[in-house]
Design a protein around this nucleic acid. Structure first.
Length: 465
DNA sequence: AAGAAATGCAACCGCATACAC
DNA sequence: AGTGTATGCGGTTGCATTTCT
């Protein structure tokens, strides 16, 4: 890998310096593969491509002497045939002191997700919150993560990523990343972001655990619904706790994190090809439909954080029970914003009302807690996937056998879920185009066969990133 | 074992902004 | 105010390495 070659370069830098003739440093070699060269203003060839340890040494030496900055002078005042830009980049990303190398820690991963939900693709800003990490590193991490989620057809943010308006007088309001971005942009309010909250997460000696705090509407509201049933969600969680406690495999951070989640991701997947979910429906999978959904979703998610250009189909009106989740991540934005305002409280009621209309059948299967899972992303994969299954469940019900149509459901609940300005998510002004919430809500997992592992990326259960 | 595909990282490119003149 | 230069940022690409078939 690149990092390894970088390390190798550094390990051997001294010998490299001795081995490379002085004139060689200024003369791009012919056989350097992808290495290209350009010509500087004064006619000197500027080398491109991977840096050699010799070049690194020169740059380090130069910075020691002259300090950072004035990068164009490096090429003039040293033997380095690199443009200033390249020098700056090399220094910033690899040579400057206090750089942290190696994989991101779970804490860093969490922070990145949190920051990304908060500020979008502001890699440099995010890097300031992660000492020793570079924007490039964070960007690569995120893009990799995007790819994995895209492949799995999963949302970018954990369902319990929500946002709390910073206004002290407001009650807890769940804010989608998108709407906050959008409103910030509309207001010209750059990065005056609300506090983002990973509800229910806290760190304890390196492990993330779940605290059963209520404000995570998306989950807690569902919990309320479950708890009103005979087969309460609380019982389910208790069962899962027992299950988790009985695990003898050291599942590490990821599983701790995962198993603590208050979500339906821990609901069972039956090997028979059906899924029993908290909504109490037996749902036979339709592979074709799932494939289609995967395709659709993948296309939406492909534009990195931004989903950005506003062309995402995720912003089209959502259908069926998927809509149920909307309040959980949507921000109550009032005033002159073009984003339609609404309030979260009725949504909770509506969600609960709807949930209560569904019988609940809960069973458990340890399969959904992969002992091999060890990363935050994996947590999310499982989490979002299972929750999405439940959405599909609900959708199937409401779209076929149920007498309740989507609109009826919404109308009867007094909740205008369809009028929350989703079409505005396509606003080309928006840097996002659609929200994590919309992605999350639209997603239907591509399951072919009987096991979740059949459609999860193979590496999703083997380790973080 | 070999080739193909996937992955991850480093580096480049273009654009935007800041600053100096 | 206009122009040129330096710097910073985010998106994208190229390729070495790893994993899969």
């Amino acid at each position: 890998m690149g990092s390894r070659s970088w390390e190798m370069n550094h390990l051997s830098s001294k010998s490299d310096m001795e081995m490379i003739p002085q004139d060689h440093m200024n003369t791009p070699s012919v056989d350097e593969g992808r290495r290209r060269k350009s010509v500087s203003k004064d006619g000197q060839y500027l080398k491109k491509g991977p840096w050699t340890s010799a070049e690194d040494a020169i740059l380090v030496e130069y910075v020691k002497e002259h300090g950072e900055g004035n990068w164009n002078a490096v090429q003039k005042n040293s033997e380095l045939s690199r443009c200033g830009k390249s020098c700056r980049l090399r220094w910033a990303n690899h040579l400057r002191p206090n750089l942290k190398k190696g994989a991101f820690t779970p804490e860093e991963e969490q922070l990145i997700i949190k920051l990304h939900a908060k500020m979008g693709n502001k890699w440099a800003q995010m890097a300031t919150q992660l000492p020793g990490r570079t924007d490039n590193e964070i960007k690569n991490f995120w893009n990799t993560r995007i790819k994995r989620l895209q492949r799995a057809g999963l949302p970018l943010y954990p369902p319990n990523v929500c946002f709390q308006a910073s206004d002290g007088d407001q009650q807890t309001q769940i804010v989608s990343p998108v709407t906050q971005h959008q409103t910030d942009i509309l207001r010209g309010n750059n990065f005056d972001f609300p506090d983002i909250i990973f509800e229910n997460f806290y760190q304890d000696h390196g492990d993330l655990s779940y605290t059963s705090s209520v404000p995570d509407i998306s989950m807690s509201s569902m919990c309320q619904g479950f708890e009103s049933q005979d087969h309460g969600y609380t019982n389910m969680l208790n069962n899962v706790e027992q299950l988790r406690d009985s695990e003898t495999i050291n599942v590490g951070y990821g599983s701790t994190f995962y198993s603590g989640l208050p979500s339906v991701s821990r609901l069972p997947f039956e090997a028979s090809g059906k899924i029993q979910l908290a909504f109490g429906l037996d749902y036979p999978y339709d592979p074709d439909a799932n494939i289609k959904n995967l395709t659709t979703f993948g296309g939406e998610i492909s534009l990195s954080h931004a989903f950005s250009n506003g062309n995402s189909s995720a912003s089209r009106p959502l259908s069926g029970a998927a809509k149920l989740e909307l309040p959980s991540l949507q921000h109550v934005e009032t005033g002159d914003s073009s984003w339609t305002a609404y309030h979260s409280t009725p949504h909770l009621e509506a969600v609960d009302t709807y949930l209560e209309s569904s019988p609940t059948a809960v069973s458990l299967q340890s399969e959904c807690i992969s002992p091999r899972s060890s990363g935050l992303l994996d947590v999310m994969l499982h989490e979002a996937q299972a929750l999405s299954n439940s959405k599909r469940h609900s959708y199937e019900k409401s779209s076929s056998s149920s007498a309740i149509t989507h609109n009826e459901m919404v109308e009867s609940s007094g909740l205008n879920l369809f009028d929350i300005g989703w079409e505005d998510c396509n606003d080309p002004i928006s840097p996002l185009g659609c929200s994590a919430a919309s992605i999350f809500n639209e997603f239907v997992p591509p399951i072919n066969g009987s096991s979740i592992h059949e459609f999860l990326p193979s590496d999703s259960t083997t380790g973080p990133f």
